[in-house]
Write a protein that binds this DNA or RNA. Structure first.
Length: 430
RNA sequence: GUGAUUGUAGCUCAGUUGGUUAGAGCGCCAGGUUGUGGCCCUGGAGGCCGGGGGUUCGAGUCCCCUCAUUCACCCCA
């Protein structure tokens, strides 16, 4: 259309929307602090090898969705982060955070990049917030992570979200199950669709959560991972469910839930929203005890984490009408100047208001008084402060409440004091 | 990567079987007595009808290509 076109799958967030993002982010920060998670910020790109090893080379993300490039002809390939977990783990290992067996609780908010075809709730650049609990892995740790995530949702006012949860067992249990599953599907090979055939080779577990109805019918009769779990794994899962129950967190056990990333084990979970289209997963996570080893660590770093898609979260909030009532960023005062020869004084006045912590705007384009008033109305200012010849000579200013049309005339000091009180009240209610 | 969808003013959209200066609502700007907005009234600015090629006396309307959008598959947050 125009010569100005953002890259496919990317978008701009203008001020009206930024208010919404800031709101969500501040709720995230507040609750993370409540649980003792502290923020980590890591690079937007990493060596490609990190993701290949961390996420798994059989996954679509690594196979075909990474933005990779070579910054220097002889250098190593690097990749725009398609997810956060591998990077967070790398950072922790690099800093040797676990030398004394410590536990680290970290959260993040940041942009990710995946070269997928854009559609509703899916972009090539998107944002997630999430948390990683590193250094210990236990049902208690899983419960902490899930309840942080769910508490953010409920604090934002979200309703009707569905938490699905499952256990994937440990590596050994999973590989026995995997073989059994493969063997079971072989006789039905010809009835499988293309995608499932490929999965049968690479990652048979993922056939379980196929969207294809005929595949789903087939899956109903397939072996269940549960039957391959040892007592300790089952008890581990039961304990997670126990904690969730204690905290009044509703969940559905879903045996077909298989997370797409290779590093998960034991508990895996996903939160979906019926408000979204086909891309209905708003957040997900699980335990990934083996990730550190996969990345080459010589010691075990058991861990649990979750990630939530900001865009999908905001879409859901929008559909539930949760974005309308957010506090506005409108100025408290709009300074209205009567005559051109008073604009310098007006500028000074606006500056004085701001010095007193009162948000103030003033016309910068030499507009008529009527236009200035319209502008004051348009930016939704609470008050108009008039500066004309009378005010200039008397030192008393007229302040108009734009909602009630009431107008008072006071000295500048009195007005500053009045507005500071109003500002305090305003922030109390917003 | 596959399949479909849409592309006309800042925004949401109309544009009849192809036919003279392409429209509406909202928004924007300016007026409606001299120092005061929101409502109302009047006027105004703003579109090579996504881009390129073709058919035709003539195309926003038909055909092809291209770019972009949206939705679904795949996969995932």
């Amino acid at each position: 259309m125009s010569q100005f076109q953002s890259v496919k799958g990317t978008r701009d967030i203008f001020p009206e929307e930024s208010v919404q993002w800031n709101h969500v982010e501040s709720v995230v920060r507040t609750h993370a602090a409540l649980y003792g998670f502290r923020e980590i910020r890591i690079p937007v790109f990493e060596y490609t090898e990190l993701f290949r090893r961390g996420i798994g080379s059989t996954t679509d993300i690594v196979g075909k969705e990474m933005f990779s490039f070579q910054p220097d002809p002889k250098g190593r390939s690097v990749t725009l982060r398609p997810e956060m977990t591998a990077g967070v783990m790398r950072a922790a290992l690099q800093k040797n955070l676990f030398s004394s067996g410590m536990v680290h609780k970290l959260f993040y908010i940041g942009e990710l990049f995946r070269k997928e075809r854009p559609q509703a709730g899916r972009q090539r650049q998107f944002s997630q917030f999430g948390a990683e609990l590193l250094g210990v892995s236990s049902p208690a740790a899983v419960a902490e992570v899930i309840s942080l995530m769910m508490q953010v949702f409920s604090s934002l006012g979200l309703k009707g979200l569905r938490l699905r949860i499952n256990t994937l067992g440990d590596g050994e249990e999973r590989s026995r199950f995997r073989e059994a599953l493969q063997a079971w599907f072989v006789p039905f090979y010809d009835t499988l669709d293309e995608a499932s055939k490929e999965r049968l080779e690479k990652n048979p577990l993922r056939i379980l959560d196929s969207k294809n109805p005929t595949i789903q019918e087939l899956v109903a009769g397939a072996p269940r991972l549960y039957d391959y779990l040892k007592e300790t794994s089952l008890q581990d899962f039961e304990k997670v469910l126990f904690y969730l129950g204690e905290r009044d967190i509703a969940y559905d056990i879903d045996h077909r839930l298989v997370r797409g990333l290779d590093y998960y084990c034991h508990t895996a979970f996903e939160v979906t929203s019926s408000e979204l289209g086909a891309q209905d997963a708003i957040g997900g996570g699980g335990r990934y005890d083996a990730l550190a080893r996969e990345l080459g660590s010589s010691m075990d770093v058991p861990a649990t984490g979750f990630a939530v898609g900001m865009e999908r979260l905001l879409i859901t909030m929008e559909r539930q009408g949760l974005l309308a009532a957010l506090p506005s960023d409108a100025p408290l005062v709009y300074v209205v100047v009567q005559q051109p020869d008073l604009v310098d004084n007006g500028m000074q006045l606006a500056w004085q208001l701001r010095q007193a912590d009162i948000s103030a705007e003033i016309d910068l384009a030499g507009k008529s008084m009527k236009a200035q008033m319209r502008e004051a109305n348009r930016v939704n200012a609470s008050y108009a402060l008039f500066l004309g010849a009378t005010e200039y000579s008397t030192g008393c200013y007229s302040l108009k409440n734009l909602a009630t049309s009431e107008q008072i005339t006071l000295t500048l000091d009195a007005i500053l004091q009045f507005l500071q009180e109003r500002r305090a009240q305003k922030s109390l209610y917003s």
